[in-house]
């Protein structure tokens, strides 16, 4: 039986200033799974992500999120979709004029009627999940790069969204922080049934959390499959990407 698709991208194409960025991207993401988009720099990963987030108009092809074609969305439907997704931006994208606590509380204050002290409890709990309780009253400019990322994750998951988009969450993190971030993402996936779509280059992360890998090259999907399939893939780019593991094994010998 075919698996349910929570995200469906079909023949997505995009060009900017006559330069073809995406030529034919097709892949699916299934509920409760972590789908990783891989590829070398400039291959169009972020462009795909921005299309999924509705930040770029669809020039060619179709994208369905939660069973609906996003190009047909009214403004209200798009807003409803945004309420069901959390987005983790690579540089954190926290609002610098607000404290970390206020940043994380923002979606709760804007979209729910929860009392302020309950919101404060939720925010503390979410910051606690990313080990950042002590940053509640600090401003983003006072945090390190790794702390910013964790605060951004806390904001992305504050509404328990069924869909979580992550743009390189592990970049710049030390291996220990990266592992705890991965464990948190796995926990959220298992406990809340989140579907996660992630752009990352961290091989260790991919091996730990990925259910599915989509490999992009020159605006096209050259591989789509499980981690196991990726490790034994004959596709040259995928082989090259995972060759780092074999290098590591050689060093261990």
């Amino acid at each position: 039986m075919e698996k349910e698709k929570i995200i469906e991208v079909k023949n997505l194409g995009a060009s900017f200033d006559g330069f073809n960025v995406l030529s034919d991207v097709t892949f699916n993401a299934h509920p409760g799974e972590v789908t990783i988009i891989l590829g070398s720099s400039g291959c169009g990963k972020s462009t795909v992500l921005r299309h999924l987030l509705g930040l770029y108009p669809i020039q060619k092809g179709h994208i369905s999120v939660l069973g609906k074609d996003i190009s047909q969305f009214t403004e209200q439907e798009q807003k409803q979709l945004y309420l069901q997704m959390g987005v983790f931006y690579q540089n954190g994208a926290l609002l610098n004029s607000m404290t970390v606590g206020d940043n994380v509380a923002l979606p709760l204050k804007q979209h729910t009627f929860l009392p302020d002290n309950l919101i404060e409890d939720i925010v503390f709990m979410k910051l606690g999940l990313v080990n950042l309780e002590d940053a509640y009253h600090r401003y983003p400019s006072e945090l390190s790069g790794g702390m910013l990322k964790r605060a951004a994750l806390a904001r992305a998951i504050v509404m328990d969204p069924p869909l979580l988009f992550c743009d390189e969450p592990g970049a710049g993190l030390d291996p220990i922080s990266l592992e705890s971030l991965d464990n948190l993402i796995l926990n959220l996936k298992e406990q809340l049934g989140m579907t996660i779509l992630m752009v990352t280059h961290e091989v260790s992360s991919i091996l730990r959390i990925a259910n599915k890998i989509v490999y992009l090259d020159h605006g096209q999907v050259v591989f789509e499959g499980s981690v196991r399939d990726a490790l034994s893939s004959d596709v040259e780019q995928v082989k090259q990407f995972f060759s780092v593991i074999n290098e590591g094994q050689k060093l261990n010998l």
């Binding site: 409890d121 709990m125 910051l127 606690g128 309780e133 002590d134 926990n187």
Partner: peptide
């Protein structure tokens, strides 16, 4: 996973 008691509130100003 989510119980708030796990997290240190002592730092709250």
């Amino acid at each position: 996973l989510f119980k708030p008691e796990k997290y240190d509130r002592a730092l709250k100003v």
